[in-house]
Design a protein around this nucleic acid. Structure first.
Lengths: 325, 325
DNA sequence: CCGAACTTCTGGAACGTTCCAGTTCATGAG
DNA sequence: CTCATGAACTGGAACGTTCCAGAAGTTCGG
């Protein structure tokens, strides 16, 4: 099989083979009612037989829309992000939109490049699952197609919608849960200066104060965990800013010979598959991921329908209590 | 900021604003040497100022190529797949190609749809990171753009190149390693009927025979692990077909009160981040993932350069010994 | 001072669609 | 028999690029 790559057949080829005009082929393939049953069938058969496939570039160029939603994600390694992507995809598909994914790991400018690239491709909307994209890049992109930030909302950017969970509230849920179990020395592991991290830290601090534990507030960087668990006044509970870091805490606890949750309660955030795999199973905060995807796509179509005012959707997170604390 | 979406500026708009012809703008933006320095700078400035961005649909339509590589992946949840994608992306970028990703989880036909879709989009090459795509879909796709299967190679498909590791050999490495440590009752957990699973099973069986342990060959489905570890003649070592299932084995060992590796050695396959996170750290088989991406892109460009014969690249896997066995 | 050679720029055709304005032809009302 | 109606189909323009052939303008050897 020599795998000869000849120029792909076009509408004209199909038209010639079927003995009709290109316009009629176009109409038939798109299921236009004004084509007689007999001819439609014949055209479909011919198209199939010559292996015709439409050119999305040509269609996009002519129609000015692509029926494509671009999704930009900063890392494929973070299950939280990828799980959101899946929910966006399901929602888009339900609207007859297809999703193309781009990820720009490592450097920040690569992410920005990918946003532009998807824009150049002609997507009808853009979902950004990362707070790591400069605001001006988003604003520029939004001149051509609506943009929604999902899951990792940065400061609101004018003209850009967002869907997120209430990180402060989620953190408060954790603190109240731990406090209710009698924990007082509740530490927080959080090395992030980005919006979600900041909000969770603030939620932790405020909630600690609200339950009268402000004197026990103690926030450490991820690489300070070993030290945190070694000291004499070590905490009885640790709330980590996400599941990944919670797993690291579990790991350190194991090294330090601490039983979880007997000696140390550990709680994460995001309810990713890491939480469901960890031993003991991780107590964590669940965001409504499927709702996120659905709402994101709704916001896009809303913009395409002409809505001009910004919408910032905030979903209520839910505490999932498992074995770790 | 009302986020008004006006029609994007085109070459003609830039040309008008700069007082030159559209052709010259095109040349200037693409860095053609036949444009005088002065004019180029002026054009670039104007383009920037009106916010011009090229239309990839128009360019692809005219040029017949998109400088895009499509990557199709069956699941974002499998770290093995996503880590391959990252390596493909790096390699493509180094060649001036951009990557668009599509994933079709769940049903098989969705995956096939995404392959077609990327083809319709006009990608110059397709990398399929999944053995779950029907051969005839690949063959059809290959008529328009070269296709390479990576990492989960199915039976060779005529006209389709592939890059994979030697699963049989990898399995043999594991068996030899365990046997050398004195293990005899080495069981195999493998519920996959797909090519990689089958090859690893065969590699396990053959290697067991080669070290004189054919009487201890015992292969179980993933849901038979609890039973496997409970019985009286339980194995002293388990080789799982991938890291995910190895982690499940670790989980069951914990439930059964077995110490790893003292009571039970556990070995995985793929060397994903799961192996690096598990406790104890998982002994596993590493495939040369970066090489995979590079070779995959090389195979694509080779085809684009006119190569007609199929290439099936087989990389040698490497055993990574960690704490679990 | 002619024209060759080069540099710099331009206009139009083409890529594969969609869409609009028609055209053709049969049907049936008057 | 005529003409309006509608069903079925067609031709050409347009979308935003690229690319080719060629048009200006400039330089320079003879």
């Amino acid at each position: 099989m020599p795998a000869v790559r000849r120029p792909r057949p076009t509408l004209l080829d199909v038209a010639a083979a079927a003995g009709v005009s290109k316009s009629l082929v176009s109409l038939a393939l798109r299921g236009d009612p004004g084509v007689s049953e007999r001819t439609r069938e014949r055209i479909l058969a011919v198209a199939d037989q010559v292996g015709y496939r439409p050119s999305l570039s040509a269609r996009t160029l002519k129609q000015g829309r692509s029926m494509l939603v671009g999704v930009v994600i900063s890392s494929l390694a973070n299950p939280y992000h990828t799980e959101i992507v899946a929910s966006v995809e399901d929602a888009a598909e339900a609207q007859g939109l297809s999703v193309v994914l781009a990820h720009g790991s490592r450097e920040r400018h690569r992410l920005a490049d990918r946003v532009q690239q998807l824009g150049d491709l002609g997507v009808d909307g853009l979902v950004v699952v990362s707070s790591w994209v400069p605001a001006e890049v988003l604003t520029t992109a939004a001149r051509r197609a609506p943009v929604v930030m999902v899951g990792r909302t940065a400061e609101p950017v004018p003209g850009i919608d967002s869907v997120n969970n209430d990180d402060e509230h989620g953190a408060a849920l954790v603190v109240r849960h731990l406090a209710a179990q009698g924990h007082e020395r509740i530490a927080h592991v959080n090395g992030s200066r980005r919006p979600a991290g900041t909000a969770r830290r603030r939620g932790y601090e405020d909630a600690m104060a609200a339950v009268g534990l402000e004197s026990h507030v103690r926030t450490v960087e991820p690489d300070g965990v070993a030290e945190l668990l070694a000291g004499p006044g070590r905490p009885t509970a640790v709330f980590a800013r996400n599941d990944v870091e919670a797993c690291d805490v579990l790991d350190h606890a194991l090294d330090a010979g601490l039983a979880v949750p007997a000696d140390l309660a550990v709680v994460g955030y995001d309810d990713t598959m890491l939480a469901r795999r960890a031993r003991p199973r991780l107590t964590t905060v669940q965001q409504q991921r499927e709702v996120m995807g659905t709402r994101a796509v709704e916001l896009l179509t809303g913009r395409l329908g002409g809505r001009a005012d910004d919408v910032h959707e905030v979903l209520e997170p839910r505490l999932v209590v498992r074995a770790s604390g």
